[in-house]
Design a binder for these strands. Structure first.
Length: 749
RNA sequence: GGGUGAUUAGCUCAGCUGGCUAGAGCAUCACAUUGACAUUGUGAAGGUCACAGGUUCAAGUCCUGUAUCACCCACCA
């Protein structure tokens, strides 16, 4: 009978995809209608909010493959009677996009200031939309059966509105506040960074031993050791361990800070490590996170000497002003040496914090930022975890998540960027005034004017809202320049995408079922989605978190563009097809494991895909046109083989429900190849080889074989949707099947 | 320093609540096949399940300790 091509050609995959997409049945509302029309029971909706990839670049292999987990769940659920919503989107990725796009502007010889905030935003938006389009193509290429009619971008006004509502409500409850804290400042990106946006690098540095003379004991001094001499200009104290006998006599006395010529106290604190350096440590609250804590504890003065550009400033000798930190360090060391206050300098290697994007050294500085007190939210999240309302796979990650919640710190939610959701706040009389009044409790606007010499018109009050408020008595409203940390909006993804707590989709599709992503973002994303979800909706945003493995280069190293060892998804699609890639990923990228991408492994899976094609082809070829009606009308007898097949379907279904995709993939391969092909088809060959066309024996054997093939196609479909649908459509052409495999129901389950 | 996990065939890993004569894929070797598929079939080789103790009738599987590795968090004056 009809001649199918000798091997499966993965080029048909795009064609198959458009078949699915055109049907509109990836939209759960349509799917629900379809189920009703076909007389199936409509089960509860199944929702996954897909992790939105960053809209500043093409998708990498990890993204693309990750979606095959979402899709296997989605397809299986759809075939089991659930209207399935796989909700796609794209993330604006604040810092990263701003950095990528600014670099692109640089190549054109422009800066973001040249464009101005509005134009910058507009162009960055276009840039993201272009990338989003590419990303969407890749998502389709892997076979993701998502409802693209609902696709969203994190900066869509619908989402922003919901994010703002959350902000207003949190502010009113006192969870959000402005605070002066030490932050990670990237002097290059000119923004505060969350800890997550920083990395650590081992760099060469110096260890300078500097003598601080005692004020009341001429000739005596305390030597402190520091890797950053320039920060001494901002020192507020020298700290020693209370049990340290070498220094106990000095505690409570004062030393004269060289060069700055300021008197600072000697304090005692348990935190000080007696073994390290000289056992005496200089305390610079303004420029070191630890020192900041120490300073707060001991009520020390905060002396700012480095500005947000990483240059020296503030209450320091004129000659150092405007210097970079390294330059200043050198100059200081030289002067100290001349004064005989430099004991020695050691070369050392130490970890420094750098900006994840541009690798610039992070400058810890004091800054006014917006904070969210996440502690009460974390407590609720922790409770849900403990009660088992959210489960993390692999289980070990659950403990890690609990530990994270138990030790959570206030979250800095403001970023000094242009790209993002601008914090909807207005300051009467200006931001500086507001912060000043906050720091100087009890003082008034008049005090501000007197002490700073700046004239303001306003009350120092805040107004929350997007639109500029009415100006009464000629007061001037200053708009907040900062934008939200990206995680503040992506943390609301599962409900913001469904239209917020009032949305129709929300009512129908929330909470979602499962969150699937790579392990590196569990704290930064999932942890926040749980907190924000509980806060806004009172419900957990998803019941399960499934953490995928990481794709590595074939030598086991991390894939990265800079190393040149990254593999484009496109290459794999072209050479082996999406099904082969998916199949490889199910078995290799298990939770907690690494998956080095080896070509020969994908090849092996491609062979299996081809095997499916050829076994189907064999069965189709053996059915004569004249036998079709007899075969399709014949009742399926529950033979041993059919029963075994049913059992197989149930088993694989269980694996999918338990997120054991590797076992599922292994089973479908084992059953199809080594049971159906190697044994049953071989048997069938012998049974029909001497039979006449249309004979009872032939009809019996072929009917059973075809049925088993179709059942196998169904259970394999969630894993490898393309080849199975391609075969199904061949069957449809011959009147041996109907409709699309994607929407077939697994009735035996 | 804190946390989490890993350690099973050459490689990447399965092995759920203890019953294994320890599996898969890829790689290797031998043989077969122009027959749906050379993108195939049949078979072989390859492992004291990191190490040391313990619990048990029975341990890859549970407990304790040791070692090595990985990731995350904190920090390094």
């Amino acid at each position: 009978m009809e001649q199918l091509s000798k091997s499966y050609n993965s080029n048909v995959e795009t064609e198959i995809y458009s078949l699915w997409f055109k049907s509109g049945l990836t939209n759960p509302d349509n799917m629900e209608e379809y189920l009703k029309e076909e007389g199936y029971e409509v089960k509860t909706p199944f929702t996954i909010a897909l992790p939105p990839p960053n809209a500043n670049a093409n998708l990498h292999l990890g993204h693309v493959c990750g979606y095959s987990f979402h899709d296997v769940m989605g397809r299986y659920m759809r075939m089991s009677g659930h209207p399935v919503l796989l909700l796609p989107g794209k993330d604006h990725a604040g810092i990263q996009t701003e950095s990528v796009f600014t670099k692109q502007l640089e190549k054109e010889g422009k800066t973001k200031e040249d464009l101005g905030r509005k134009e910058f935003y507009k162009q960055a938006y276009e840039f993201c939309m272009k990338n989003a389009e590419n990303a969407r193509e890749q998502e389709k290429r892997i076979g993701l059966s998502a409802d693209f009619s609902r696709e969203l971008f994190t900066l869509d006004s619908k989402l922003t509105k919901i994010v703002y509502e959350t902000f207003y409500s949190m502010f009113e409850e006192g969870l959000i506040y402005r605070d002066k804290r030490i932050i990670n400042q990237c002097p290059n990106c000119m923004t505060a960074l969350a800890d997550i946006d920083t990395e650590h690098e081992l760099k060469r540095g110096i260890f300078a031993y500097i003598k601080y003379p005692l004020v009341d004991n001429p000739g005596e001094y305390i030597t402190v050791a520091t890797t950053r001499p320039e920060t001494m200009l901002g020192d507020a104290a020298v700290a020693v361990h209370p049990d340290d006998e070498r220094y106990s006599k000095y505690v409570g006395k004062k030393v004269l800070l060289p060069i700055a010529e300021r008197e600072i106290p000697v304090i005692a604190d348990e935190e000080v490590d007696m073994e390290l350096g000289t056992g005496a440590v200089k305390v610079t609250p303004a420029h070191s996170p630890v020192d900041f804590e120490l300073g707060q504890k001991h009520g020390l003065e905060v002396v700012n000497v480095i500005n947000e550009k990483g240059l020296m400033e503030g209450d320091i000798p004129e000659r150092f002003k405007g210097m970079g930190t390294v330059e200043c360090s050198k100059a200081l060391v030289k002067e100290l040496d001349e004064k005989g206050l430099l004991e020695k300098i050691e070369n050392t290697e130490h970890e420094v914090t750098v900006c994840e994007r541009c690798r610039t050294n992070i400058e810890p500085i004091i800054s006014n930022q917006w904070y969210l007190n996440v502690k009460p939210l974390a407590e609720k999240a922790l409770k849900e975890l403990k009660e088992g309302n959210i489960k993390v796979y692999p289980r070990g990650q659950q403990k890690a998540l609990m530990h994270f919640y138990e030790n959570i710190q206030p979250w800095c939610i403001s970023r000094q960027l242009w790209w993002g959701q601008r914090i909807p706040v207005w300051y009467s009389g200006g931001k500086k005034l507001y912060d000043w009044l906050l720091e100087n409790e009890g003082k008034t606007v008049q005090d501000f004017e007197k002490e700073t010499g700046v004239k303001v018109s306003g009350t120092g009050e805040l107004y929350l809202g997007e639109e500029e408020p009415e100006s009464t008595n000629g007061e001037v409203w200053e708009k907040e320049e900062d934008v939200f940390d990206t995680w503040f909006s992506s943390g609301q993804w599962p409900f913001s995408t469904l239209g917020g707590p009032q949305g129709d989709d929300f009512k129908k599709y929330y909470p979602t079922q499962v969150m699937i992503h790579a392990r590196d973002i569990i704290f930064w994303w999932s942890a926040r989605m749980i907190m924000m979800g509980l806060y806004r909706t009172g419900q957990v945003p998803f019941k399960d978190i499934f953490v995928t493995g990481m794709i590595l280069a074939d030598d086991g190293s991390k894939m990265s563009k800079s190393r040149g060892n990254s593999v484009e998804p496109k290459e794999i699609f072209e050479r082996y097809g999406a099904d082969a890639l998916r199949l490889w990923y199910y078995s290799d990228a298990l939770p907690g494991s690494n998956a080095p991408l080896r070509e020969e492994k994908i090849k092996g899976n491609r062979n299996f895909v081809n095997k499916i094609w050829n076994a189907s082809r064999f069965i189709i070829m053996n059915i004569d046109k004249s036998e079709i009606s007899q075969i399709s009308e014949r009742e399926i007898k529950k033979t041993e083989k059919v029963a075994k097949t049913e059992k197989h379907l149930l088993k694989v279904g269980k694996y999918i429900e338990k997120y054991q995709f590797n076992l599922g993939a292994e089973s479908i391969r084992e059953f199809f190849w080594h049971q159906l092909c190697d044994i049953w088809i071989e048997e069938a060959k012998k049974q029909i080889q001497n039979e006449d066309i249309g004979s009872e024996k032939r009809i019996e054997v072929l009917t059973e074989l075809l049925h088993i093939l179709k059942e196998n196609l169904k259970i394999m479909h969630p894993f490898i949707p393309f080849v199975t649908e391609a075969v199904w459509q061949e069957l449809v052409n011959l009147n041996l099947a109907e409709g699309m495999l994607m929407t077939q129901q697994m009735m035996s389950l």
